[in-house]
Amino acid sequence: MSTSTAVSTSTPLPVLSVRGLSVRFRMRGEKYVRAVSDAHFDLAAGECLALVGESGCGKSVLASALLGLLPGNAETSGSALLGDLDLMTADEQTLARTVRGRRIGLVPQSPAAHLTPVRTVRSQLEETVRELTGVPKPRSRKAAEAAAARAAFPADHLDRHPHELSGGLAQRAATALALIGDAPLLLADEPTTGLDRDLVERTVDELKRHTGEFRALLMITHDLAAAERIADRIAVMYAGRIVEHTDARAFFGAPGPRHPYARGLLDALPEREFTPIPGMPPELGDLPTGCAFAPRCDRATAACDVLPRLDAGVACHHALEAQRA
């Protein structure tokens, strides 16, 4: 186990390269809510990165920033290079015409809400096929059936409406839609919320399969079991910051997490200690200048008044050192 797993730039060109990405929201009275602070990561083809953290830690904001779907009061800083395009400076037209669906496929949080309720799965697939690939109407039927088959969506359910589908099939329909544009980056935002365990496993396995050799998968989730199942690397987010970024096997396996927050998160799982981390995360509108986790941390000292930098995959002055020696 090396400690340099976090910076896996071994592969030639990353599909996505996020550099110093920050997002803040301007609120009333010149106040700011800092939802994402200084995020760095690369994502190569064939790789799956799971961004984990509790609700409100800023991980969904990060996803929306990548898709250019931030609300009007948001301000961003830093860059996110998708190939040679900086998603942070691209205008809405570029994002709408060349990025969403074509270069980033979005697997949504609640597929039932993502699909148009009044139209059949077939008509939605066909429309997306025509829109994204320019296949003319007569041939779009075949192409839509092929797209459905790719996501293992049963052909005899194509003429159903979204509300007539089970949760698993709705998820597959949404995945089929996300795959049509053949985008090099798949972005899955909480793809397993509210699904049964079997379905969670099937959904993430399918995502992994679609990632294959040539795509990259960024999965945003609070479900650690889902992340453990398919992720190559794990980035743990706390109060808007990536506090640990490491190899997934090392994280869930033998050495374990090195950031006290990440360790606490794992220990809270019912299959482990089932003990909560005391306290609650800080308000993103009122972050301390030092380490945001210090007030809840049993290892905190005076040193934690200074913001720890992400160094060798962990942002902590007192990272668990056991496996480094």
């Binding site: 953290g53 509790e54 650690l224 809270a268 089932f274 003990t275």
Partner: peptide
């Protein structure tokens, strides 16, 4: 706890 993260789940169950 279906919508919640591991730590909040453990806290509420406790």
């Amino acid at each position: 706890t279906a919508m919640l993260d591991a730590s909040t789940t453990a806290a509420l169950v406790a």
